[in-house]
Design a binder for these strands. Sequence first.
DNA 1: ACATTTTTCGAGCGAACGCTCTAAAAACTG
DNA 2: CAGTTTTTAGAGCGTTCGCTCGAAAAATGT
Lengths: 223, 223
Amino acid sequence: MLDSTTLTTEALCRSILERHHDTIQIQKPEFAIRKLTRIITAALDLANAKSFHGMSLRDLSAASGISMGGLYAYFDSKTTLARMILEEVTAQVRLALEAPPADVADDPVRHLEWLIDTHIRLTEILQPWFVFSFMEAKHFPRSERRLAVDNEALTEDYFARVIERGLQQGRFRPDTPVLLASLIKPLLQEWYIKRSKYRRRNVSMEEYSASVQAIVLRSCLPA
Amino acid sequence: MLDSTTLTTEALCRSILERHHDTIQIQKPEFAIRKLTRIITAALDLANAKSFHGMSLRDLSAASGISMGGLYAYFDSKTTLARMILEEVTAQVRLALEAPPADVADDPVRHLEWLIDTHIRLTEILQPWFVFSFMEAKHFPRSERRLAVDNEALTEDYFARVIERGLQQGRFRPDTPVLLASLIKPLLQEWYIKRSKYRRRNVSMEEYSASVQAIVLRSCLPA
DNA sequence: ACATTTTTCGAGCGAACGCTCTAAAAACTG
DNA sequence: CAGTTTTTAGAGCGTTCGCTCGAAAAATGT
């Protein structure tokens, strides 16, 4: 079960530090994590308020309280900073969705419900991270763009495999829309991209999750 | 019926010229439309390849074949250029969706199918325009951002009204997901935002439209 | 206490940005 | 063809960008 007390920004930054320990010039890990957390927090704030391009490193320096030069002890270019965030999002999606509970994995219907609910819960906790990945990915150099594309393909694949299994087991109607797996993804993205709109309308995460589940299941369950 | 021979870039640029005739310094309309078409075409190309921020006016000058100074006879700032495109997209959505054929307007089911199909056809013809509106809107000043938000609210409203009517007439199941109208929109956006993905998979517009219609109708029609 | 390493700092670099401005070219008018 | 208006061109302005670098400061080791 996903838990917002373990999925903290600090925890993700620890993971980032491990992945980039060779390029991050700071020696003391605990020290580095604390500062990296300040940097990433500020970067997500600024990038989501304006855009990653619109956020200057002087902005980031002021918001994080770390000098221009100091920032470059943690990354060697602005693009690397973006890559850190993109890679971490992919890693967390993998962690969250790859291993469903045993009692869920057997039943395609429950598995589908679980995937939808888990994805929404994950993006609720890590909303700024997912918004960043989605909104900024298009504007990056090729290799970084691939990261975001692969990330979406990964999510779609989890759904495609469950739907395929449901069809084979005869649990889903044969005329289930072929594109269903592809079309679930935008339904999940809507939640974090338009988060403020649903907050304004007092739509809870549970309501949203239930609506998506209803739409998906009614299009693949026998009438 | 939408027609790609009347919905040309030139036709939209004529509409833009009329809306901005007071700030565009060129006197001869036919002349202005021809050049404005070159500018907008190049701007959509460049902005969608990189991003609107990433597109410099020197890029635009080179791609459109119009000098730096010449560009400013058509707009007084880069933001105004963006606003021209955003406003035109909103206008075209209005034109396309506001007046359904008489034989469609009476039946909520057919009306819903028509809205979905028409929106997909519209965005197929004007794909670069819609991608621009969606991708770039977040990064603009407040007033321009409002344009894009209103645009989405407008689309959602067309769906919300039809669904409401279907419920009142008892044509739709009472437990139709409350969020259905909001969730149709991301399904329609997926088509133009990920256009290249579906081209790669040989998914035709008709297939896509049918899938979306199936998903939507199965969640609101009685079982 | 000093020596050595690690970390912080922000002024400064070249490049690119949005935008302006004036002189020349082109297009009309009579 | 001269006179007038309209349009074009691109160098140049001030600003901001990503990024660097050497010196100061802090932390650590002996």
